[in-house]
Structures are given as C-alpha cells and as structure tokens.
Amino acid sequence: MLELNDVSVRFGEKTVLSGCSLSVAAGERIALMGPSGCGKTTLLRVALSLQLPSSGTVRTSSKRNAAVFQEPRLLPWRTAAENVNAVLSDSPGTLPEAVRWLERLELREAADLYPAELSGGMQQRVSIARALCCSPDLLVLDEPFKGLDTALHDRVLALVNAALPADTAVLLATHSEEEAKALGCRILRWSEGCFV
C-alpha cells in the first residue's frame, strides 16, 4: 500500500527525517509516537505526497487517501454537511449520506451550520466524518482527537475504530499510547531521526 525507502527530509540546515523506511500494508494500522517537532507530521505529509523527500523514495498504491489534519481544514463557505459531501460527490444527492456520517459523530444538529458557527471540537469531528465517509485506502490521522473532551474523545475513538473498513491502512501520529492501542495500531517510536 505504502512504502517509504530511506526517506530524508531537510528544511535548509535542519534535518527532520533521516533515512526513514516504512512499509504499510492494506488494512495495517501504524501509530507514530515521539516528542513534538520530531517529524511525525512531516512523515505523514510525505506519505500523502504533500511533501517531497529530500532523498529516498516513496511508493504508494493507494487510490483514495483521506486525512484528518491537526486543523479541521473545512471550507468556510460550506455547511458541515456540504463539507462532508464535498469529498463524496459533486451532487447534492449524496448529502443525506454526509448527514448520516455527521449523525454518527453526534453532529446532526450541526449539519446546516457553517464552520465559523461550530466549536473547535465540532469542526474536528466534521473533519473526521469527512475522512471516514469516503472509505479510503489510506487514512492519515495527525493528532485527530485533540480538543475533544474526555468522554467525547473515547466515544469518537471507538466510533472511528468501528467505522474503519478492514482494508483501510491507517497512519496515526499521536502522543497517546491509549489512542494507538484503542485503534489497534502497531506503535513505531521516534529514534534518531526515524521511527522504529
């Protein structure tokens, strides 16, 4: 599904990733753990082809990617339901499906609201609904549960775990081992510029 070979990323003088190799099979779930600024997000960006590596190769067979970024990245001029529907189709015909996903994330009442009318946690849940609804081959989660209160955090985590198709590969960046375990992830820890 995804293979990173000897990938290094440098920003000017600063080396963020150094000779990192990683292989993710279909349905495999991997959590990247390490201190802030160690390169978790950079590795996820490389996996999504948003960041070109300075050296090394990236191969992917994923046809459909999805991501929950640290920021919700919602279209401010579209309602919550329209934001979810934006990745489903160009047609309003799939809007009920988008609303169903919002319902699963306890956001039924927010379906017709614009992002500016939602709290940070609600926006993040819309972003999670958007990522889950399109049944991706590769799902990248960059600290996706930040900003959710404890009870909601556990419910959303369980929901994501239940909603994930079995063949969806997951790359999760997190500081929480519990989160990684709850999603059934194999944990890779940061060590000298790489995750092992």
Partner: peptide, 24 residues
C-alpha cells in the same frame, strides 16, 4: 494553502478546486 492541500489529499478535480475553493 491548507484548503488546497486538503483538496490534493481528497483528489479534487481542477473544476472542483475552482468551484469549492478558488471561486469563493
């Protein structure tokens, strides 16, 4: 640029990027 990245991840077509991000 964050929305444009989101559009890249979800493989929005050029016309979808135009209608959903550029035009508004």
């Amino acid at each position: 640029p964050q929305l444009l990245e989101m559009a890249r991840v979800y493989a929005f077509s050029r016309s979808r990027v135009f209608r959903r991000i550029t035009l508004p």
